[in-house]
Amino acid sequence: MSPRPEPTSRFAPILVIGYGNEQRGDDAVGALVARAVATWELPDVQVISVHQLTPELAHTLAEARAVLFIDAACCAGEADFTVQAITGLAGHEVGGHGGDPRALLALADALYQRRPPAWWLTIPAERFAFGAELSPTACRGMLLSLRFLRDLIHSLRSEPCTRSD
């Protein structure tokens, strides 16, 4: 029998997952934000920087106290970045190339009956060419979102654990 994730506790990590293709310009911004957060070396924050969301992340996610997904967003409007609490659990496919955190949360819920509170931070993206540098828009979104994330993580670390399972 496969071991299940440990029940979430106040010591469970806050999970930050940044994802995107680091060779395709602004698509990298989520992964780059995650790497920047990792350099803060916060003791109860687990940071994962990945090319794409893959099914096995559901296990890690189920052990977390809270989850922050960071992604690039095409055609995202005027805002420097957008944050939304993820409330719905859409039953999307979690295949090899799926990029929807709601699908991963739904998978964790279905597999382990765990659904940590989650937020989805998206940064506007304009350039997706191979080898392209970050656009000024994505750079600005990255810097401002890092400030926001520092505050959000600080407030989550101060809060008692909130379980939803």
Binding site: P55, A110, L111, Y112
Partner: peptide
């Protein structure tokens, strides 16, 4: 789909994840 599989065969699906 995967969610239907989890509902029918949860242990197998968890094994695949592991």
């Amino acid at each position: 789909n995967l969610f239907g599989l989890i509902a029918a065969e949860p242990e197998l699906a968890r094994g695949g994840i592991r």
